[in-house]
Computed example of a mutant assay.
Amino acid sequence: MTIDPSKISTSITPFAMIDKHSALPQEQEILFTMHTVFRVGEIKQTAENSRLWEVQLTITDESDPQLTGLTYRIKQEISGRGWYRMGKLMLKVGHFHQAEELYNELLENASYDSERASVYYQLGWLKDNQGEYKQAVTFYKKSLQVYKETRPPDDPELGSMYNNIGLVYNNMGEYSKALEYYEKSIKIREKALPPTHPDLASSYSCIGLVYSSMGEYSKALEYYEKSNKIRE
């Protein structure tokens, strides 16, 4: 392990030697902070024991161009701050159980309705992706209720919430309920968004899919054509 003292911030202690406090002092244990980042160098099998591998690590700092680029990309793809961003990152990489534990903790300690609404939304997304649709609807509706109380009735975020609930009902095969929420979504989006906005195309396509599943093919075609017209 290589640690360049010039790369250690004066405001952060990246590691501490804890061998004097460890139950196994002969192991020379080191405790690292959560945000310490190392660059992985050479990886090789040890000569003494073929079951062990030696990894060469070099500590990095905020001036590392690759680390800076990666951090910027993550911030662009995953919005939010602190633990909320961590939860979204867990969802993105498919660590659903860990994300659920984190969101339940955030929900328990939330101080504002906006925080609770955000957590409910993420839990709804999580349950939807796990195929637990009834729970997904429950969480989405809890989030929607907060949004309805705190946002104007034509807020695009409300349109997205209605659309997500419609998607879940569609996955459940409850097409009449799916259509109900899709229509609420499209009503808001037609008012709040430009006529060529891709979210409108998505909504028209979703409604077309529901009508197709219900066997109402002429209506399905009507909405598919609206969607295609925007996407062209």
Rank of each mutant, 00 (worst) to 15 (best):
Q135P: 13
F38C: 08
P198N: 00
V40I: 15
K7R: 01
E54T: 07
K219S: 06
D64W: 00
E54H: 09
L91K: 07
A220P: 05
N49Q: 09
A201L: 09
Y204Q: 03
W53Q: 12
M34E: 15
G41K: 14
I230V: 02
D19P: 07
G69P: 11
L209E: 06
W83C: 11
M17P: 00
R231Y: 09
V40H: 06
Y223Q: 03
E132M: 03
Q28E: 13
A16D: 08
S114V: 07
P156A: 02
L67F: 01
S176Q: 08
A23M: 09
Y103S: 14
S79T: 10
G87D: 13
Y121R: 15
E54M: 10
N228H: 08
G94S: 13
S213F: 01
D155P: 12
D154S: 13
Q135V: 05
Q76N: 06
S227D: 08
H97F: 13
Y133N: 15
E101Q: 10
N129C: 09
H35S: 14
K187N: 11
Y211H: 12
S227G: 07
F38A: 02
K142S: 15
F15Q: 12
N49P: 09
G94L: 10
F96L: 03
P156T: 02
T150P: 07
A23F: 07
E149H: 14
T196F: 03
L167A: 03
Q135F: 04
A110W: 14
I207V: 02
N109F: 05
A178G: 10
A117P: 14
A16L: 05
R85I: 00
E100W: 05
D4A: 01
L91P: 05
N104C: 08
S205Y: 07
H35M: 07
L31H: 08
H197Q: 10
K7T: 00
Y84I: 14
Q130E: 13
H197A: 05
L106P: 14
K187D: 09
K229M: 03
R151V: 04
Y147G: 09
N104Y: 12
E48F: 04
L123C: 03
R189H: 13
G87W: 13
L179Y: 05
Y217P: 04
I186L: 14
Y140G: 14
W53G: 08
I188H: 08
Y72Q: 04
V37L: 01
M161V: 03
T36C: 10
I18D: 00
S50Y: 13
L144T: 06
